[in-house]
Deep mutational scan, measured.
Amino acid sequence: MAAGGDHGSPDSYRSPLASRYASPEMCFVFSDRYKFRTWRQLWLWLAEAEQTLGLPITDEQIQEMKSNLENIDFKMAAEEEKRLRHDVMAHVHTFGHCCPKAAGIIHLGATSCYVGDNTDLIILRNALDLLLPKLARVISRLADFAKERASLPTLGFTHFQPAQLTTVGKRCCLWIQDLCMDLQNLKRVRDDLRFRGVKGTTGTQASFLQLFEGDDHKVEQLDKMVTEKAGFKRAFIITGQTYTRKVDIEVLSVLASLGASVHKICTDIRLLANLKEMEEPFEKQQIGSSAMPYKRNPMRSERCCSLARHLMTLVMDPLQTASVQWFERTLDDSANRRICLAEAFLTADTILNTLQNISEGLVVYPKVIERRIRQELPFMATENIIMAMVKAGGSRQDCHEKIRVLSQQAASVVKQEGGDNDLIERIQVDAYFSPIHSQLDHLLDPSSFTGRASQQVQRFLEEEVYPLLKPYESVMKVKAELCL
């Protein structure tokens, strides 16, 4: 049975990233139509530049190519590739079939990587351009969430054990800070992308030097003109047959890092959902379990974690691919890159769409948070109580021993009897502590235990987050809708 299948058929496997999760716009960027249309555009740009620099290419040939950029006979191309065992030459023939007058000058002087690699770089750039505003929107939604809850005390956790208090907004800023680093890295790697350009079979530009009869300047002009037509500021000066596969490492490393950030955020949300302090959106008709109707599973956060793990592992592909590119190139890269580049971007696209949807509907339960604080705060307040007693004339050592005994009794009630923490009640009825009984409410005010959390939130948002989001103001209103 021949390899390949009808990918629109229910009898043929289709990647869930495309069929179930990723956005239509990201799927289109990695589609065959987008790819092969870009090949034709690159052939047109090459012909236009070659004509401008004096090669015998007519206006009629150029116009014929322009008129057929979208006229792609995919069936013919597939048949040609089956016959020739070469995808680029299959599309040269297919393009030439609908451009008979231009057929002889299509791909003039070029090698397969002229269309293959340059198209990949265009796709990487455009895919990054799709991700950047999506990530900015996630940051914006979380920034709104953090600002609104900047002063809401909550129990902090280290080692997932109760620690000092923080605020809900401050905790959210930990998430935002990681995503801001990801946004900066995505922008950097996007701006650092260079075009492969017009380089020939081993990167020496020998074929173009021959076409222009040894004119170095025209060869350099050709490279520059096509690079500018493709919208790049610069091209690699040095290439082998391909652009260095280190570029793929750079791009997928940034995406993998984004995956790590999203995994951490969504894990926190899942843990908070278990504590009943916070939940992701839950639709009115949504079913959490087929057997347990009360369940409210954090399905979206779980999906993000599941896909983020996949995204983090994909960076190993370009690392290994770059390491086995012998001399000017081997074909070890080809099949692998067809999979890992598309999957990385479709996965990143999915987790950003999902995280935006989550961040637009996060639900906080202040009463649950308050109750958990009441359970733990008495123990945390013991040092403040000791200091207040010393100020009232008591002995630190005597007070410490009193607190120690009462704390152990209260802990026994919590752990052995399943009761509430009654340390404060014990202190309130103990005559030894009568000098500070009137101060206990103040000493137990949760806001006095959150330090500068709310001020940190305000400063972080104003100095770091809002300036970073400013270039994306025009796209901030787009909502994230999930079908599944």
Rank of each mutant, 00 (worst) to 15 (best):
D120L: 06
C483H: 12
I105V: 05
I269A: 05
K264Y: 00
L468N: 10
G394F: 01
A146W: 11
A102S: 07
Q409L: 11
Q51T: 08
S395C: 06
D182A: 01
T204F: 08
N118K: 04
D216Q: 02
G214T: 06
A453V: 02
D317V: 07
Q416M: 07
T350V: 09
F208L: 10
A342R: 11
M292G: 10
W326M: 07
E280P: 15
G156T: 02
D117A: 04
L17E: 00
M26N: 04
R188N: 11
N118E: 05
R194W: 10
Q63W: 02
E283K: 05
T166W: 03
K229R: 06
E401D: 15
A410D: 12
V364I: 01
S407G: 14
P56M: 12
M476T: 09
A103W: 06
G288I: 04
R404P: 03
V247A: 13
T94K: 07
A308E: 10
H86E: 08
F449L: 05
C340V: 15
V414W: 12
L331M: 05
L331P: 03
S31Y: 04
L211D: 03
T450I: 02
R245C: 04
C305Y: 11
F160W: 00
A308P: 02
G231W: 09
W45N: 01
V364T: 08
E343K: 12
Y243M: 10
E376A: 04
Q439L: 12
K75T: 11
H86V: 08
H263R: 05
M26G: 09
A342W: 06
I339T: 11
I139M: 09
F36V: 11
K218R: 02
P446Q: 00
S23V: 11
G156K: 06
L319Q: 01
D117T: 03
L46R: 06
R33L: 09
A348Q: 08
C173S: 13
K134Q: 15
D144A: 13
V115A: 02
I106C: 01
G5L: 14
D6G: 10
A308R: 05
D223L: 14
I176F: 02
A127P: 15
T350I: 09
D59C: 13
S334L: 12
D117V: 07
K284F: 10
L108F: 04
M389W: 06
E79A: 09
P162A: 09
N336M: 07
L130F: 13
D215G: 12
V429L: 13
P281D: 00
G116W: 04
I265L: 12
V138K: 12
V251D: 11
Q177K: 12
G203I: 01
R137S: 10
Q210M: 01
N336G: 07
E481N: 10
R83Y: 08
M26E: 11
F160Y: 02
T52L: 03
S359I: 12
S289H: 00
R171Q: 05
S140T: 04
D223Y: 01
F36N: 00
Q356M: 03
L152F: 00
R245Q: 15
I424M: 12
I424Q: 02
I358V: 04
R196H: 15
T204P: 09
R33T: 12
H400Q: 03
F212Q: 03
H107E: 01
A143Q: 05
R329Q: 12
I72K: 06
I403M: 11
M380N: 05
M312N: 08
G54Q: 08
S9H: 14
E277S: 10
S407R: 00
R20Y: 14
V413W: 13
N297W: 07
F460D: 14
L275S: 10
M89A: 01
T52Q: 11
C27E: 02
D11V: 08
Y294E: 10
V247R: 14
P318G: 02
Y21N: 14
E64I: 03
G361R: 02
Q286I: 02
E25M: 09
G451Q: 02
Q41I: 07
S140A: 02
A146L: 00
E250C: 14
F212V: 12
L128Y: 08
T313S: 04
I122G: 06
K402I: 15
D215C: 06
